[in-house]
């Protein structure tokens, strides 16, 4: 089982390494979206600091969603996806491998970049830390839930726009708890409750989402 997972992750990472520019696009999209907010609302430090967590989280949502369309589409177009459906392994495990690779490529860079962006908005020490931790817990959920949407819209015209319509409402709890944790810790209220709820959501998504994505893939490949 672990061998299968490792094989899928390595395969997708190798592929991503041969298309490095795609990875960078996601990260720069994230940075640009975050940087647009001060230009829109003005450079007032207090206001920016209050908005910081929400802005970074919404940008992370959008960036992760942007990279979703490629999650299965390339494999679908060259026929490797149908071959993956036919290997003697549970399809949900294959999906989990792909999602894990997708998170390493598109989620993890966001986590790493986030303190830098937080600094731009005037966040400090603990808040920066909290921002990173929430993104670390939350971005895998984004990839897991997003995989369902990506699988359902596979091969459809306008799939990219459609996937956002399907997936963004499902992202709302992660957004609320993620941004809420940072705000709560900034207000000195402690964010343990938020973090454990995010952990629970992550576990739930980890159990259910690969299964749902596998079912969606079988429907879409037909």
């Amino acid at each position: 089982m672990l061998a299968t997972l490792r094989c899928m992750v390595m395969r997708d990472l190798t592929l991503a390494m041969r298309h490095r520019s795609d990875v960078l696009t996601t990260v720069f999209f994230f940075i640009i979206v975050v940087s647009l907010f001060p230009l829109g609302v003005g450079p007032e430090a207090a206001l920016l600091k209050e908005m910081a967590a929400g802005v970074v989280w919404v940008a992370a949502l959008l960036a992760s969603m942007l990279s979703l369309t490629r999650l299965f589409a390339d494999d679908y177009n060259d026929g490797t996806l149908e071959q993956l459906l036919l290997v003697p392994q549970p399809l949900s495990l294959i999906v989990l491998g792909k999602v894990l690779a997708h998170w390493i490529i598109s989620g993890l860079p966001l986590v790493v970049m986030s303190p830098l962006l937080g600094l731009q908005f005037g966040l400090e020490g603990d808040e920066l830390m909290m921002l990173m931790v929430t993104l670390l817990l939350g971005t895998p959920v984004l990839s897991l839930l997003g995989a369902i949407g990506a699988a359902l819209t596979l091969g459809l015209r306008g799939g990219g726009v459609l996937v956002s319509l399907l997936v963004l409402p499902l992202y709302i709890p992660v957004l609320i708890f993620g941004a809420g944790a940072v705000t709560a810790s900034a207000a000195g209220m402690g964010a343990d409750g938020h973090l454990s709820l995010m952990g629970a959501i992550l576990l739930l998504a980890l159990v259910l989402a690969p299964w749902a994505s596998a079912a969606a893939l079988r429907i879409s490949v037909e």
Partner: peptide, 8 residues
Amino acid sequence: HYGLKFEL
């Protein structure tokens, strides 16, 4: 389809 990844 060939079922091959062209980059590999």
